[in-house]
Write a protein that binds this DNA or RNA. Structure first.
Lengths: 106, 106
DNA sequence: TTTTTTAATCGTAATATTGCGATTAGATAA
DNA sequence: TTATCTAATCGCAATATTACGATTAAAAAA
């Protein structure tokens, strides 16, 4: 027990949940906002921007990369993070479709 | 340690993360889809619909209620769940605004 | 009344997440 | 070469999540 039973749900349900989960921490929202605000690939100065340790931020970056939302491109010793446009579109599409399925009833 | 440091982030960052986290499990997506598909307030037959135990579903319902996404209205012995329209709009607004902040750069 | 139904909560166990310091590996600089 | 910088990973601890059976409280039915 303790782990979620992903095999019981559709792949779309699992994918929405996976992407939402990746957004489910304020530090990861802050990271994405920062990467977007810089409007370019941003290297490890995220660490200077957020009040969290380097290892913690690296973990959050990993979570965002695992979901596919962020890309990391190696640039010498530094690594350049940016939004993965395809996954961003996927996220937008899945969410807005999900939102549209509801129209007031109560 | 172990708990997230919500006080380090803006209330908007925390709220987006809180709502996203509530969507961050396939069972909760399935619950919302079911409630929406019924296009009306739905009572506890969610338990018959999903392959999870009554107590587990009750926990997921609690998570959705805590985030405000679901409302539960007492109807005799049964409880009637439906989407909270205000929070649904809030969710839609926050997410679509968040999505719009990004335009391709890389 | 007693019985049944409904949904929340309790108790427990397994697993996941969050966070940080320390270490590591690879690239760059001196 | 050695030193430094960068970012991932390791190891650990605290806490949260997920899941289920059992119990509970309240309403409805018999």
């Amino acid at each position: 027990m303790g782990s979620s039973k992903n095999d019981l749900f559709t792949s779309e349900q699992n994918r929405i949940a996976e992407l939402a989960k990746a957004l489910g921490h304020p530090a990861r929202i802050a990271i994405l906002e920062y990467v977007i605000r810089k409007n370019a690939c941003v290297c490890g100065d995220i660490v200077d921007e957020l009040p969290l340790s380097q290892s913690t931020i690296s973990q959050h970056l990993k979570a965002l990369k695992m979901a596919g939302i962020l890309q990391g491109n190696v640039e010498g010793a530094k690594i350049c993070y940016c939004i993965n446009p395809k996954v961003w579109t996927e996220l937008n599409t899945l969410m807005s479709h999900f939102f549209k399925t509801y129209t007031n009833c109560c």
